[in-house]
Design a binder for these strands. Structure first.
Lengths: 176, 176
DNA sequence: CACCGGTACGTACCGGCGGTATGTGAGATA
DNA sequence: TATCTCACATACCGCCGGTACGTACCGGTG
């Protein structure tokens, strides 16, 4: 996780990985079928750590709208952590291939967003809509927003702006 | 362009490139400083080809709202072309690094979106908003939408759904 | 206790790939 | 004609992912 975050997938050599882990290539290839599998293990680890608390946030009791907005804020913050940003948002689609990435995301971040959108629809907060599609668009917008924040010269201000913009988009979808 | 589209950056070897181009590595390294520079040349070529017609669409006379919607439709279609999808949307941020990619996109697709959003704001069609941020969110949503369409088992239907969802988001932002 | 199979590694090596150093022929220049 | 430069070609290097094979240990079995 550390090396993949710092140097990226292509920039991380297995020799360096085994050196840091103080094992040999034989050991690595005993536990993982290859570099790709090692990356996917890191991917799963980061996702598992990240998503569980967010899921709890989303599915908590209380006003559905406030809950959703809170979860959204938390997700944007998560996207700002270097590990999540680099491994999950930026590199995973390319390294794992889009199809496989999408598959894996079903049970993690994308599944989370879909749940959130579905809850809002069920609660009658937003108009009936194809949840699948809406969740994907929202996912893309959030990722882009997170990237923007991360590379901003004033992340705090940009963070507030991104939150404001997303809230405005959501408000636009809200039932009157 | 062909090989980068078909096999991706990592999967494309320079040996294969020079073989297809019927030149040698010496020739390649005479014209490009390395593999990365070759990719960036392909990137620029794809973008230059793609964006010019879209810019014309966006800046055309007529009802600003209709023009923007038309440009948006055209952009989604562009994102569906394999070359654009693979090289520009998926691989470029990783291969070029996010910072450099963002820099390059300023004069291409992102610049296009920002122009479109700015025109809508100027025409008083949507609420005042930080154009920069809105354009980035929209860009992320469109990219995700395009990826969804591209990997759908029924691209035509998914395409209509994505268009509908994006239009609904835009309508939500529209001034009454 | 000897034997044995399997697990969990370590070691040595291969092939491919990006990159470089150097050679070379054709044209421009003086 | 001698020289210089450009536009390549050729040969080679070092790194890296992956593999083949060797080996120490450990629990079960006769």
């Amino acid at each position: 996780m550390h090396l993949f975050t710092k140097r990226g997938y292509a920039g991380t050599s297995l020799d360096e990985v085994v050196k840091r882990a103080r094992v040999t290539k034989g050991a690595l290839y005993h536990h993982f079928s290859g570099k790709q599998a090692l990356f996917e293990a890191a991917f799963t680890q980061v996702e598992t750590q990240s998503i569980s608390s967010l899921t709890a946030l989303i599915t908590a009791d209380g006003d559905p709208w406030e809950t959703a907005v809170g979860g959204l804020r938390a997700y944007v913050r998560k996207c700002l952590e270097p590990e999540y940003q680099r491994i999950i948002v930026h590199e995973a689609p390319v390294v794992m291939g889009w199809e496989r990435w999408r598959e894996a995301e079903e049970q993690f971040s994308f599944g989370l967003l879909r749940t959130a959108v579905q809850l809002l629809v069920d609660a009658g907060e937003i108009e009936e809509a194809p949840v699948e599609i809406m969740a994907r668009l929202l996912f893309g917008a959030l990722s882009a927003g997170a990237s923007t924040i991360a590379s901003s010269s004033d992340p705090k201000r940009t963070g507030r702006e991104v939150e404001g913009a997303i809230l405005r988009v959501l408000e636009g979808l809200r039932k009157k």
